[in-house]
Design a protein around this nucleic acid. Structure first.
Lengths: 242, 242
DNA sequence: TATCGATTATATGTATACAACTTGAATACC
DNA sequence: GGTATTCAAGTTGTATACATATAATCGATA
């Protein structure tokens, strides 16, 4: 693996995992020490992370970790919903063959399978997260648009904007089972709409589906102040004041 | 100015202006020679341009200029329309005060003024382009969402996705006057919708407004094969085969 | 003559050196 | 006592050196 890749992955992990002080300048020499890579690949990673939106350049040089307020988070989710809506509409307009839909159908069946039990184990949540990611990714494939794929990839670079962001966080919540079933209901309807070429319906469903993530976030944050296992939560300013 | 900024601006100019061979690896030593800056800031610029989508990394290292097909271009325009639609909807939902709307109204009036004459000079097209950019930018201000602003900024980084992309290109076309009037009609209706808080209408109008750029592109490219003054056109594969 | 292989040349990725600048602190000054 | 001011330590931005990997060239062989 390239050193710059190592630096990027590690730095992202450090930022999302809360290993670095927010509101402080990211000192390159200190990062050199912690990541064990020279300044050059670290600077490459910093440039990339700025474009991702996880850090921001300081006027006097260098970077600092970016913090978001709750409106930013909601906007990011709304933005994802809009882009997935566009992709879903395009997917429906493309009138995919049964063969092209097979991947999406498979993800759907796996999600059904995971949710079939009475209760969900920690492992089930993890499986759900993966299968959910696959579903969303396969949907994007059906849109068959590199431009849209990139736009969406850039959007979900913000940690809480990802379709799978809050799945793990709600493991253990009493409402979780029901929420996941609602999400899966929406997945099914989305599949139907795309299969039938109902493009407007597909777009609306994808949008509303993303808004479920908003509700998830609200529910998770209303819980115990003992903050849940949500990577990147410390990047949200006043997370306790939700 | 920083060397890396100089390198970024110059490189972007070289790519869009067709000063570099497409389908060839961007040789860093040669760029050093042409831009008169060391490899370090050039590499920074290359990383940024890759994120912008203007160049792509080669599997064996280095970068090459990215080429787009017509579907990519249409998708980029559709994407911009979708994002501007989201911004317009949000702007309408925000119920801006008359004072907040003043900037948008001013851009609208200036556009009216430019179009008031019987014919349009080269200079008028240039003025239109600027005022049009201001209108779209001010609209984005009204959405008051950094997340959306960034998403749109990343989208219009593709040269032909910008709201002003085809304005200059159509200077001299017989249809141009009419097209600009239609665009301005849409601007007015968009303003009305935002002022009245008609969010769905605002969204639809913004989307359809972007699709006018698609028609512009089609018209411009159906013209004389003597390719018009459209920066970045050589990045579109088979532009002649439209 | 065309294709494969070895060798040379060149480019990329990384580390490091250096200069200009920023930041923090200590001291002088009001 | 509080505010400038100067100085030092540290940091960033840039240039360059070096090792490894890639591309090109030339020659050999089928």
């Amino acid at each position: 693996m390239q050193q710059s890749t190592k630096a990027l992955l590690r730095l992202r992990q450090m930022i999302l995992g809360g290993e670095l002080d927010v509101d402080e300048r990211l000192s390159e020499p200190k990062l050199v020490e912690r990541i064990a890579v020279s300044r050059t690949p670290i600077r490459v990673a910093l440039v990339k992370l700025e474009h991702e939106g996880l850090i921001e350049a300081l006027p006097s040089g260098g970077y600092k970790i970016r913090v978001f307020n709750k409106q930013d988070v909601f906007d990011a989710i709304e933005l994802r919903g809009t882009l997935e809506g566009l992709a879903a509409r395009r997917a429906a307009e493309n009138r995919p063959t049964r063969r092209a839909l097979a991947g999406l159908a498979r993800a759907l069946t796996e999600l059904d399978d995971i949710l079939s039990g009475e209760t969900l184990s920690e492992d089930d949540f993890s499986r759900y997260m993966n299968a959910n990611a696959t579903f969303h990714d396969t949907l994007l494939d059906l849109a068959a648009s590199p431009v849209m794929r990139e736009a969406l990839a850039r959007t979900v670079a913000l940690p809480f904007a990802s379709p799978s962001a809050f799945v793990m966080a709600q493991a253990g919540l009493p409402e979780s089972h029901q929420i996941l079933h609602i999400a899966q209901y929406q997945h099914h309807r989305l599949y139907e709409a795309i299969e039938a070429g109902e493009s407007s319906r597909a777009e609306d469903l994808a949008r509303e589906h993303a808004r479920l993530a908003k509700r998830n976030l609200e529910i998770v944050l209303e819980q115990d102040p003992a903050v849940p296992n949500l990577p990147g939560l410390q990047l949200i300013k006043d997370a306790g004041a939700f």
